[in-house]
Design a protein around this nucleic acid. Structure first.
Lengths: 250, 250
DNA sequence: CACGATTTTATGTATAGACATATAGATACG
DNA sequence: CGTATCTATATGTCTATACATAAAATCGTG
């Protein structure tokens, strides 16, 4: 046990070395959205001027960012901010469309309800922080080969994600849209099982009392709540699969 | 979408550079168990002799292994193989004892059944590969503050994990034992919901027909099946929580 | 214009050397 | 015997340089 250092705990506040400062600086710009996905970050040559160090030093910082999948480096072209990546295979359940496509089934999507409103007490409680601004509330249904696959009930903080105001959630599922447009830094999943009530049973076309899998997910960027979603899957018929692979690739 | 390279797919079989060869070589020894957790890997000085290169080159290989949490580097002491780490927070559900302790509740464990046998057809199907050797079958119950928390039904491949023969699963839950003694490279989780039948209801002290969360997990080392486990949690009362955090630390 | 060849350029890998820093182990001391 | 100090040493960071490599950009030619 002594070897497992349990990183999250107390950082000894080690003296920030130059390459770490560079890495943290760039990381910050990416995570705050200052450098959005696709943005080309300065060339190593420019960075060594900016930070007054050798190319090897900025290269080390960039290499670590690349290993962490925050940037993608391409010879001759430069280094680019990656779009928000799945930090773990589990999160693929975040994109139901991709999940269904991966199963080789045809994806269907149906927007049930989408409204914009000033956050009420329940919205604020659900999103976490003391938001008083506007939110978007979305209800929709995903289907595979025409059969109900999951129903989704989502809340998006419009102040944290103003771009969402312009998105067309009738054309694109909110999960996909968010995943491809909004970088996030933390997510929390809560998984549980319930039995279907009348409403859920009707929406999913299953029997009342049938088991359902529930996934509640909250997503933040730098501790600021972005969205909260509840997904309801028919329980026995469907299994969520997550794969993990150790080690390194390449 | 174009930026997301979907790593798992086709590796362009890039020319293995020296530092990558070193990294892969060391990684292999760790994952095969040749260098077990706690083992001190050769000093940089020895490695540069072994591979005939400069210290910067071996250092780069070791740095990447450290970033991937496969080794831990300590000044003056050397670099050490880390014990199997959680590759993702989700996997903390792999260690129910740790999960319950994290909740601040007292952990209880009860071995219901533990038997060794030659793998039958059902065992082989469950573990995957065409195993014909011996397996250990375990049934046990975990409780928190004296209340049933989950029941576990596990199969361990004794040929792949011969050390398990000497383990005392009456004293230590098999999940904890495996996590701390056996390195793995791949795991697959399958999550679903069912309603409790008579047997499950009795074991978990819930009503027949109550929702239950089911987690099936399979674990491999280098494509060789190690163990298969099914966990049954009471559904509404309990929630599995997983957290993800982007970026890098330090 | 289309298309292949050439050039340019940013990253990728590797080197030798230098100094910093933490710390395990040895040593000295009370 | 316990503790403070010293020392040796393995890792941590950084530099300046060199050449390799992939791919974008340009050029040349039919």
């Amino acid at each position: 046990m002594s070897l497992a250092t349990d990183r999250g705990k107390l950082q000894p506040a080690d003296k920030p070395t130059l390459y770490k400062q560079i890495r943290i600086d760039i990381e910050r710009r990416i995570l705050t959205g200052e450098w959005p996905p696709g943005h080309r970050i300065p060339f190593e040559h420019e960075l060594m001027l900016r930070y007054g160090c050798s190319r090897m030093t900025v290269s080390k910082a960039l290499s670590e960012l690349a290993q962490a999948d925050l940037i993608e480096r391409r010879r001759k072209a430069g280094s680019f901010v990656r779009r928000p990546t799945f930090l773990s295979a589990v999160l693929k359940i975040a994109d139901i469309r991709a999940e269904i496509n991966a199963l080789g089934r045809s994806y269907g999507y149906e927007l049930i309800q989408c409204s914009r409103r000033t956050a009420n007490a329940a919205d604020r409680a659900r999103l976490g922080a003391g938001k008083t601004g506007k939110v978007i509330a979305i209800a929709c249904r995903h289907s595979a080969d025409g059969v109900p696959f999951a129903i989704e009930d989502r809340l998006i903080d419009l102040d944290a994600v103003p771009e969402a105001a312009a998105a067309d959630f009738a054309a694109e599922p909110p999960g996909s849209w968010l995943l491809h447009h909004v970088p996030w830094t933390e997510a929390e999943h809560s998984i549980s099982a319930i039995v279907a009530d009348e409403q859920a049973a009707a929406a999913l076309d299953i029997a009342i009392g049938a088991p359902c899998l529930v996934i509640d997910r909250h997503t933040w960027r730098s501790a600021r709540p972005l969205t909260a979603v509840r997904l309801l899957y028919p329980g026995e018929s469907h299994k969520l699969i997550a794969r993990f692979k150790g080690g390194l690739e390449g």
